[in-house]
């Protein structure tokens, strides 16, 4: 597979991640799509370790490590400094985990995107605080075991819908992506790079030790999340224009859940309930994307509601 990205690698070998780490796959593809005029701001997370321990670094682009709540705010200040220096070629990127985005970094992120700071904020989502040992975050999905939702106390709350929270800020560009769909990821990174203002990319990135999966099915597992509509691929422009990017092969949620040890306690009944929840969310999303199309149709003719999302794959 050839990607429409820089031939060069901006991430060297020798990183400190576990085998099959989705965050690494995401970062490698992301930086290839971005190119060399990129600065990464990385709040405390697995990536903060992965990119190297002093005095080594695996990154060929500048990296600024940041406190866990401060990804978006450090990136804001760096952008301001570059502006004052007249450097308009460089893109500032905040690269944070789900904990650093959904939870402790959310206030700073909300503030920064409300100001429409000109940066790309990437949340690579492995659905828990992995760096500190697989604790539950507000991104941890319904049904999951983590070390703070142990045994029969597995998480019985839904995952926070971070994309909709960002969409509600009406920023120019919000998109989901997935390590199993690299072309789609590259396209979205390039699109984000071309837009001024705040861009938010939510990249689904599997974590073999955290999800209790063998490393060789890391990408496959991430792909199944899309196929089961658990993690739909879509983008939202200016807070209103929804485009669903994937409507290929579909699967029941059970396929996705069954391969992961973190869901091993779930029963057939649980799967049924989760399937319903996923369908509800999926329909809601389709309606948002479809309503757009419908509005457009209504304006041009009195045609029926066209609930046909755009298809990329």
């Amino acid at each position: 597979m050839r990607l429409d990205a820089d031939e060069r690698e901006f991430m060297c070998s020798g990183h400190a991640a576990c085998p099959g780490c989705g965050a690494v796959i995401a970062l490698r593809i992301f930086t290839k799509a971005m190119g060399e005029n990129t600065i990464l701001v990385i709040p405390a997370s697995c990536t903060g370790v992965i990119v190297g321990v002093y005095p080594q670094s695996v990154m060929r682009i500048p990296v600024v490590h940041a406190p866990m709540p401060a990804g978006a705010s450090v990136a804001s200040g760096l952008r301001a400094a570059l502006d004052m220096r007249g450097d308009t070629d460089t893109t500032v990127v905040a690269w944070a985990g789900d904990g650093g985005t959904f939870d402790i970094g959310f206030q700073a992120l909300s503030g920064a995107v409300e100001r429409n700071e000109d940066f790309i904020y990437v949340c690579y989502d492995n659905e828990a605080y992995m760096n500190t040992g697989i604790q539950c975050s507000s991104s941890t999905p319904y049904g999951a075991w983590t070390t703070t939702t142990p045994g029969q106390d597995w998480k019985r709350l839904r995952k926070k819908n971070i994309v909709e929270a960002l969409v509600a800020h009406r920023i120019p560009y919000v998109a989901t992506a997935n390590i199993a769909f690299p072309e789609d990821l590259v396209r979205k990174v390039k699109k984000a790079k071309s837009i001024k203002g705040s861009k938010f990319l939510h990249i689904f990135a599997s974590c073999p030790p955290g999800w209790r999966i063998p490393s060789e099915i890391s990408v496959k597992t991430a792909r199944m999340a899309v196929q089961a509509n658990i993690f739909p691929l879509y983008e939202v422009e200016d807070g209103v224009r929804y485009t669903i990017n994937y409507k290929g092969k579909q699967r029941p949620v059970q396929d996705y859940f069954e391969v992961q040890g973190r869901f091993s306690h779930l029963t057939a009944e649980d799967f049924e309930q989760i399937q319903k929840m996923v369908e509800e969310d999926w329909e809601l999303l389709q309606r948002k994307a479809g309503d757009q199309a419908a509005d457009a149709c209504i304006q041009s003719s009195s045609a029926k509601r066209a609930i046909k999302p755009n298809k990329v794959f």
Partner: peptide, 17 residues
């Protein structure tokens, strides 16, 4: 900024710049 934590964090970013 939306808070003092972000205030000083943003200046850390700016000063690094």
């Amino acid at each position: 900024v939306e808070s003092e934590h972000s205030c000083l964090a943003s200046l850390v970013g700016a000063a690094c710049g």
